[in-house]
Design a protein around this nucleic acid. Structure first.
Length: 808
RNA sequence: GCUGGUGUGGCGGAACUGGUAGACGCCCAGGACUUAAAAUCCUGUGGGUAGCGAUACCCGUGCCGGUUCGAUUCCGGCCACCAGCACCA
């Protein structure tokens, strides 16, 4: 009989609905296995989403078989731009299209037959959910971690709307192609910088891919250096710069200020004023993309006409303005050491500024005596041209210079971070309203937490306001309100939160979603959290994961939860590419829909193929013929078990060996997350059992029962069917993960390759317990004809290999 | 530019801490069953040279070199592709 997946899968899906697997049981150890929840797009799920979900589900089911109660929830990150854009075009309220999409997602997700606890399902757009997102914002505001700031955003002058960085393609608006400019708008910011050090340090605690940790480390970007004060010649003011190379201070021959630096305009001498102002104006029109695209050679800049004094040698050095200096890093001003920095070097060459080398390679101290051809940027060398520092080791000086400068009184030792505060507001409709009221008397006042959720009002039109503000500004009845403090007339904040907000804490809410007293009950949080395993795409390596860590730490600080890292272990699955090896996309028409695969092959085949396709952390191209191979394998196995289902004879020695060896390899491969070789292991052992069946006439039932349990995390329907075909009662998921006997898992005889001078020349098959001497003698006999000369050395690695080194 | 990853048959990939390179699957070829085809089953399948043949030998894990009895694996130096970050002083 052929394997009728449609009937069988339907049967067990119904059975599990009536007899749920993995019911909550507090006597068991908990295991929280979380998928990154999806944005419910109109396109539905494709086979790439499936991959991560199958990995996490196989892992969850394995934990169930190891006796744990597994928390495995699913939900939707449902605020976001696509729904709003769809509303603009089709005049459908985002909540309506979002709900439709969610329905489709639910249907598709259920086809995976994962252990999701649908009672835990949540969506970020639900007022009962975003009530608590707003609550967290209020707490951040009260803690002084949320503040307003004028901030330049990407602005499309044609669409009259603000754009996210993702909406800007090659410096132009993604929708209309107009070059994007900057516009200053009032924004809400979150002080994630206050947590920079903890976010960096605590990475050590996490069992995450090194790659992700490294990306976060670089994003935070900690550096050690010094702030140095430069007096301005003839003016009673100073410029403070930040440098990581104070050891090169004697080589500082000019300075550069960012165009936005407050002194840039002030320091322009009357004859330079016009040039400087023009330069600053031009720079302000440029986009980030333009500013970054400039190569070293094309750097622009303008001299202010003023000079600063190098505090070490009293030399007058010119002060320039250039947009290669960023206003929001360090102090927005730099000292330039062209001899030892590639950018400063290019700038000095272009504008004919002085270049003084102050470090020379140890083995070639006179290398720069006759000039320098390119910047020598390594910190390893001998200090020259630096008076009292001459002759010192530059890498040593690099470390001690901040202290020495501090002692001399014109600077201090400093640490700097690249990470900036989080721009937390969006001028959009479809997001959580920021619960703040602007009162002319009281200033910014948070909406009292008892009044949350502050619901998103319905609007007539989703068109941007034109001023860059959210469409919400046009709803006067909503905007005009009373101040919670003085009860006077006030206005609501019209910015909404970014999509990152809802996803920064959702894992907390799953375990207590009906709680209307707190975002999560502390006792429950202590019992079920944090997340043990988090599975999702590497595209969230920085932002989402950093924001979640930030909010978790904040909630820990205010006592809501008792842990300060949300995700213990992280796994990033690789992408599924189209059959041509390129990213699947709607526009290329190479998207593979799982619905079709389910229809043709069934859930279990698709699950197994998603795992078999390649190493789970690596990208893999979809191949229709590959899934056929898995399908054939399942049929072969089904037929084999069907034939032996009523076999009551004893297990043979060979069968016992196969059984225990299978447990061993599947367990080992699964523990190391090598899902692709788990599946190939099943195929290999199925082939062996077919051979055994042919040889001995049967295979014992117990071996198949073990096989069924081992198979159940990957192909649950099939495993359950096998389990019952073999006459077992209950569910396969009530059993426990089998263990193996080391002695039985070992083969009785082993085949050892024999090498002569490192090349394989034959084999001996010996008893696995055979003595070394006997094995070597047998091997010698086997390759006697190839031992042309004296054996200089005999190497026998027990059970592995024999090598005869022959000379002559 | 920096950081990370990858490079193995016609293809996806396997090989534990250095020990038979190519498991498993796909493709392909031949055979069985069939009036025929599909499905299924069996056999073969890295390249080359010699032989009717079982077989024997040579080459082969991106390239060059090193360590070792032995290297896909370790070390040094390159190349290519992919991803992320990018004027962070």
């Amino acid at each position: 009989m052929a394997y009728n997946f449609k009937e069988i899968e339907k049967k067990w899906a119904k059975y599990w609905e009536e007899n749920p697997v993995n019911v909550k049981d507090d006597k068991k150890e908990k295991y929280y296995c979380l998928d990154m929840f999806p944005y419910p797009s109109g396109a539905g799920l494709h086979v790439g989403h499936w991959r991560g979900y199958v990995i996490s589900d196989a892992w969850s089911r394995y934990q169930v078989l190891k006796g744990k109660y597994v928390i495995h929830p699913m939900g939707f990150d449902a605020f976001g731009l696509p729904a709003e854009n769809y509303a603009l075009k089709m005049h459908v309220h985002p909540s309506i299209s979002t709900d439709e999409n969610i329905k489709n997602f639910e249907r598709q997700l259920k086809q995976i037959e994962a252990l999701y606890d649908w009672d835990m399902e949540l969506k970020t757009t639900d007022p009962d959910y975003y009530r608590w997102t707003q609550w967290i914002f209020v707490k951040l505001f009260e803690a002084g971690l949320a503040y307003e700031k004028e901030f330049p955003i990407n602005w499309c002058p044609s669409c009259k709307t603000g754009l996210s960085n993702e909406d800007v393609v090659d410096g132009c608006c993604e929708r209309c192609g107009t070059p994007v400019t900057k516009k200053n708008l009032r924004q809400w910011m979150l002080k994630i910088t206050n947590y920079a050090e903890r976010l960096l340090k605590d990475l050590d605690k996490l069992d995450w891919p090194e790659k992700v940790k490294k990306m976060q480390t670089e994003w935070i970007g900690k550096s050690y250096g010094a702030e140095v004060d430069f007096k301005i010649d003839g003016v009673d003011d100073k410029i403070t710069v930040y440098t990581t190379r104070p050891d090169t201070l004697y080589g500082a021959t000019f300075m550069v200020l960012a165009p936005e630096h407050e002194l840039s305009k002030k320091l322009a001498t009357p004859d330079r004023k016009e040039d400087v102002e023009n330069y600053i104006k031009t720079a302000s029109m440029k986009t980030n993309v333009d500013r970054m695209a400039v190569s070293d050679k094309d750097k622009t800049g303008v001299w202010t006409g003023s000079y600063a004094i190098n505090p070490l040698n009293g030399k007058k050095i010119p002060i320039w303005v250039s947009d290669y200096v960023l206003v929001d890093y360090g102090t927005g001003a730099i000292m330039c050491v062209p001899a030892h920095d590639a950018r400063d070097f290019a700038f000095a060459k272009k504008f004919g500024l002085e270049i003084v080398p102050v470090i020379a390679p140890k083995d070639d101290i006179h290398r720069f005596d006759n000039g320098i051809e390119e910047a020598y940027t390594v910190a390893d060398g001998v200090v020259i041209n630096s008076d009292e520092w001459n002759g010192r080791d530059s890498s040593e000086l690099k470390k001690s210079a901040p202290d020495e400068i501090e002692k001399k009184g014109f600077g201090k030792k400093t640490v700097n971070y690249k990470i900036r505060d989080w721009v937390f507001s969006r001028q959009r409709y479809w997001g959580e309203p920021i619960p703040i009221v602007h009162c002319s008397k009281c200033g910014n006042v948070a909406v009292p937490v008892e009044e949350l959720p502050l619901k998103l009002p319905d609007v007539e039109s989703y068109e941007p306001s034109g001023t860059g503000e959210s469409p919400l500004v046009n709803i006067e009845s909503w905007v005009n309100c009373t101040c919670p403090k003085c009860k006077g007339p006030a206005k609501r904040e019209t910015n909404t939160m970014p999509q990152w907000a809802g996803s920064s804490w959702y894992f907390l809410r799953y375990i207590d979603k009906y709680n209307d007293k707190a975002l999560v009950d502390r006792e429950k949080a202590d019992k079920y959290l944090p997340v043990d395993m988090y599975v999702g795409g590497v595209e969230h390596a920085v932002l989402h994961l950093l924001y979640s860590r930030f909010w978790t730490k904040f909630l820990y600080d205010i006592g809501v939860i008792g842990f300060d890292e949300p995700f213990h272990k992280l796994f990033n699955q690789g992408m599924i590419l189209g059959p041509e090896g390129i990213k699947m996309s709607k526009s290329l028409g190479n998207v593979i829909n799982p619905d079709e695969m389910i229809e043709n092959y069934g859930c279990d085949t698709l699950r197994m193929y998603e795992l078999f396709i390649g190493p789970p952390d690596m990208d893999a191209a979809w191949d229709d013929r590959g899934i056929e191979g898995v399908y054939k394998f399942i049929n072969r196995l089904y037929n084999l078990i069907e034939k032996n289902a009523n076999e009551n004879r004893e297990a043979t020695k060979e069968s016992l060996y196969l059984r225990h060896n299978l447990i061993k390899i599947i367990t080992e491969r699964l523990e190391s997350f090598s899902f692709n070789t788990v599946i190939s292991g099943f195929m290999e052992y199925t082939n062996s059992l077919i051979d055994l069946d042919r040889k001995e006439g049967y295979v014992d039932k117990e071996t198949f029962k073990t096989f069924a349990i081992l198979l159940s995390p990957f192909a649950p329907h099939l495993a359950e069917e096998f389990y019952h075909m073999l006459g077992c009662g209950g569910s396969v998921f009530d059993s426990t993960w089998p263990t193996y006997d080391m002695n039985l898992a070992k083969a009785s005889t082993i085949k050892i390759p024999i090498q002569v001078n490192g090349k394989t020349r034959g084999f001996v098959e010996v008893d696995s317990e055979a003595e070394d001497k006997i094995v070597i003698e047998a091997a010698k006999k086997e390759v006697a004809s190839k031992l042309t000369g004296d054996i200089v050395k005999e190497i026998y690695v027990k059970g592995k290999i024999i090598n005869f080194v022959v000379r002559g």
